[in-house]
Write a protein that binds this DNA or RNA. Structure first.
Lengths: 162, 162
DNA sequence: GCTGTTATACTCGGATAGAAGATGTCCGAGTCTTAACGG
DNA sequence: CCGTTAAGACTCGGACATCTTCTATCCGAGTATAACAGC
């Protein structure tokens, strides 16, 4: 059970976009450069975020990505789901209905208890991630940075927005 | 983010072993037959469970697997971890330390806020799964079964223990 | 000087390879059973 | 009739293929920009 690498990238990128001026998009190339990520592959995940409605895109020169909603209204769960897909983590294949002692189909109207347990666990995880927003992540990152890093960040922003 | 198929198999198999007589092991072949699972592949997961100390093995004729502990002391989390591995679901690669605005190593003594958020979410899921035991799963399965299925199960048990 | 047009460069978007992990299968090592054999 | 022993069959254990998913990359489609020519 593991999250793909793209989830980490997606959250960091969204936090970066939250700190950028909202009237101006950041290109995939700039976003990749900021974290030294492979530009083409990051672009793939950015497309997934755009398809999910978390980012809006502008093409052409001075185009790029920006947050589709205020950062406080985008949860970490939405980002993870946009990149990883929306299926449940535990997929019950109903093996109780197979084999020599198969349960009758009538008895299987209620979901399998094991699947229900994992679904409850996944819900608990989802609830935590739904309560944490991109704004929270950006705030934490900003508070952890010293003045030197903040100055470097501002300088990078104006350069990336050229 | 998803659990492998082996986790489902492992939990079902452990629940089955919980219902079997504790003085007598069940072979991998019998366990596979019960759910119509590929025997060789299920054996692989059974080995993982044995390595993790959840099952004990006996070789030779009339050998097989049995629970190493009472079913009420084996949690679903332990089963999942034994099969999937113990690493964290979200692995922070510290991309904040890379790029033109890299955070200083000194500022990174405290863990990344994003990684902490995902770790908290994973802990929430783990806590739920730690509270649910194999005994609970076996009980639910038994209560969902009708009398016909219970009779078939008992008949299968004596045949598998031949 | 202003406006319309056109060429350009920059951006996203989906289609296309490669690597890693999960899935599935096989045969050898080990051991308990069992039955034959000798005492 | 009993103890010993050796063969046999059954079991687990790890090494060996196959396949899906994740990772990584490239080139074409589309658009705002900016230069340029005409008025």
């Amino acid at each position: 059970m593991r999250f793909g690498e793209g989830v980490e990238w997606g959250v960091h990128v969204c936090a970066l976009l939250a700190a950028a001026p909202p009237d101006r998009g950041l290109s995939a190339k700039a976003l990749a450069e900021f974290h030294e990520l492979p530009p083409a592959y990051l672009a793939k995940h950015l497309q997934a975020l755009a398809r999910a409605g978390l980012l809006t895109t502008s093409r052409g020169p001075r185009g790029g990505y920006r947050l589709a909603r205020p950062a406080g209204e985008i949860s970490l769960w939405e980002v993870a789901e946009a990149i990883e897909g929306s299926g449940p983590a535990f997929r019950c294949t109903e093996i109780r209905q197979r084999g020599p002692c198969a349960a009758s189909a009538k008895a299987c109207i209620r979901p399998c208890g094991i699947a229900a347990a994992f679904a409850a666990a996944e819900n608990a995880m989802r609830k935590v991630l739904e309560k944490i927003t991109i704004a929270d992540a950006a705030m934490q990152a900003a508070s952890a940075a010293d003045s030197r890093q903040m100055a470097a960040f501002r300088a990078w922003l104006v350069r990336a927005a050229t």
